[in-house]
Nucleic acid binder design. Sequence first.
DNA 1: TTCCGGTGAAATGTAGTACAAATAACCCTA
DNA 2: TAGGGTTATTTGTACTACATTTCACCGGAA
Lengths: 238, 238
Amino acid sequence: MVKLAAVRSLHGQVVQELGRLIVGGGIAPGANLPREELLAERMHVSRTALREAMKVLSAKGLIESRQKTGTRVREVTYWNQLDADVLAWRCDLMPTDDFVEKLVEMREIIEPAAAASAARNRSDAELATLDAAYTAMADAVDRDAWAIADLAFHEAILQATHNELLASLFAVIETALGSYFQLSAQTASNFKYSLPHHKKVLDAIRRRHPEVARQAMLATVTDSRRNIRRHTKTTGAS
Amino acid sequence: MVKLAAVRSLHGQVVQELGRLIVGGGIAPGANLPREELLAERMHVSRTALREAMKVLSAKGLIESRQKTGTRVREVTYWNQLDADVLAWRCDLMPTDDFVEKLVEMREIIEPAAAASAARNRSDAELATLDAAYTAMADAVDRDAWAIADLAFHEAILQATHNELLASLFAVIETALGSYFQLSAQTASNFKYSLPHHKKVLDAIRRRHPEVARQAMLATVTDSRRNIRRHTKTTGAS
DNA sequence: TTCCGGTGAAATGTAGTACAAATAACCCTA
DNA sequence: TAGGGTTATTTGTACTACATTTCACCGGAA
């Protein structure tokens, strides 16, 4: 359900392939990749394209290259976990309950604070954007429309904080919501379930009441956590 | 005061140079870079090295390349603001009060929550690491030793949450503390000023009291915010 | 005039070769 | 056995050539 991006460039594909291989555990941290010439041949690309891909993975903290020694996978600690690609790969390949739990914890930390900040700092234009997103949620006719509007709602709040560092955490929220949609897709219950929660958040931000917004958002996230918990218990997977 | 990294590889230097140029506002978002051949010649490197550097900057969200159109600087919204390099460049080139304020806001959101989580999830080994960092702070004989120990203390807490997403935010904390050290360097007052605050945090985590840890950490950050405020008022710069 | 389609040119994308630089591993000597 | 120099291996850089994409221009038809 995550963006497949359909990377057209060749090195982009290599980034995807190697990135997923590493994040998925195909190559253990500390282990070496085959040497460039070999790997390039094996993947049917030129060394040029391969190297450009490896530079990207290196920027994401996944690998590290040194002359003579070769290229090796770095310890998980050094991975740029907040990178959109790394998040997407991880969530796609290892959506364990454990990881989903960590995503929810992030939401519980970030979003209530962001809602409070948005209530303090929002402009009228940003309120309008948020309002539009809420209306789209209310008018959604199916799950997809709801998901898009929901994402827009949460993004609008992050933008309204006027703190771009906070806004950059949208990648995390996006991933968390994505996995939530996927998990709650099987539970056939009403998908507009959380609309009232969102309305409280919207109203609080409109009236510039930071603490009310914080509490309302916390309730929203806590509620979705409970929703996931219920589902994982039901299926009882892994 | 941030890590200068002394990048040895050529494309690493190009990444630094172009990255700083872009983040520093030398090239406005939306504007195009010179074409590769030209830029490579101008920077006295091969097109190969330049392209590898541009792939890295592309991974950080700073630029975007398309055939025929060329390479252009992306809007600030798309920048990977949480990337360690981007943070370091920005803090180095534009340490405006405005930006420092945003860093502090991030700390106020992240660190109290992290302290609470650490109090719940810490292992004995992680407590020992935290304890060692505290001792090093207490024993610090100069500003540098204090700074190193202080960083270790805050990193240990993030690690103890057992949430690697949270831990990845250390780059933000590191940058924030770095700018704080730099700002408070001129104020000649006692640099161990905040030691008692840290002790309260440590004790709460030791005793596994999440809410106490949260409040103690919040007090610590709030206090440092006040400290910065006082300083900026004193100098009254920009 | 305006719209549509084809065509060319300009930029990035990919391939391949050759060589430079760093350094781990080996060997040779004292 | 220890020390130091040499070699071999791997990544790093340069250069060339060509492929691919796509904007922009031009020409013809409605």
